[in-house]
Design a protein around this nucleic acid. Structure first.
Lengths: 129, 129
DNA sequence: AGTACCGTGTATAATCTATATATACATTAT
DNA sequence: ATAATGTATATATAGATTATACACGGTACT
């Protein structure tokens, strides 16, 4: 399943798990109905406790992305494609909105904000300098 | 001075204060040498404790943005303009980078990411719908 | 000069909340 | 029955927040 969490990351462990599982679901890597690792398995893989993985799954369940059946396991919920799209956009918008708010607070022009985005998107293809 | 913090915000109170003071300094609203409210004044204005405002100022001092002189007060440090510029950019980049990472994780194209930014920037001028 | 005063930051110990854990219990299919 | 799954309770730990007592630096008045 390939998840990775770090205790040095200030983000709580359960939150790190939530983000990674949610991303895979929204990306379509985990289709509706597919079984997630059991909270025991996942705890072992990540060297954490069952309670922590349980808490992560609980969050995702509240969001309607997964379904837990006692004795059976945890599965990806059947979410309508258009809802997936809007959830993906909502996730990304959250960060963009934060960037816009910060730009306004420090008195940065929209043009410069766009330039920064272009610069960051360019990285990884063009060498710097 | 007009700051506002909320206990309902999951971001720690001292962190909320740090963000707002930092933003005003980087925006140039608080020029070098100007005196900040005392930790007592600020605590009273925000209905919080001296220790919390002190902690906020401590963070800003570590960043080199303010200077505290015992018995005198706290003042905006003299930061070189080009450093201010790069700090502003760093703040905004942090959020943009998070947006890019999230976009990649959920399998969103760069083009769509740019479109979302345009949409959010448009808001506040054009009516929705 | 001297000294009392008032505003400033400093330091310590205690409380509260959220995060993370171990372990024992209940459910489901085979 | 067994072996997998999720559930529940009590505990430990770290971070955030607070109250309160202390020390420093100007200022004004004698």
């Amino acid at each position: 399943m390939l998840f990775s969490i770090s205790p040095r990351n200030p983000v709580p462990l359960y939150q790190q798990i939530v983000e990674q599982v949610r991303a895979k679901i929204l990306a379509g890597e985990l289709p509706p109905g597919s079984q997630l690792p059991s909270i025991r398995e996942l705890a072992k893989e990540l060297t954490t406790s069952m309670i922590t993985t349980k808490r992560a799954y609980l969050e995702l369940e509240k969001e309607g992305l997964i379904i837990t059946r006692p004795g059976l396991g945890t599965f990806v919920a059947g979410v309508r494609p258009e809802l997936v799209t809007s959830l993906k956009q909502a996730r990304v918008k959250e960060h963009l909105q934060a960037a816009i708010q910060e730009a306004r607070r420090v008195g940065m022009q929209e043009q410069e904000l766009r330039a920064l985005l272009d610069e960051l998107l360019g990285r990884g293809r063009e060498p710097p300098g």
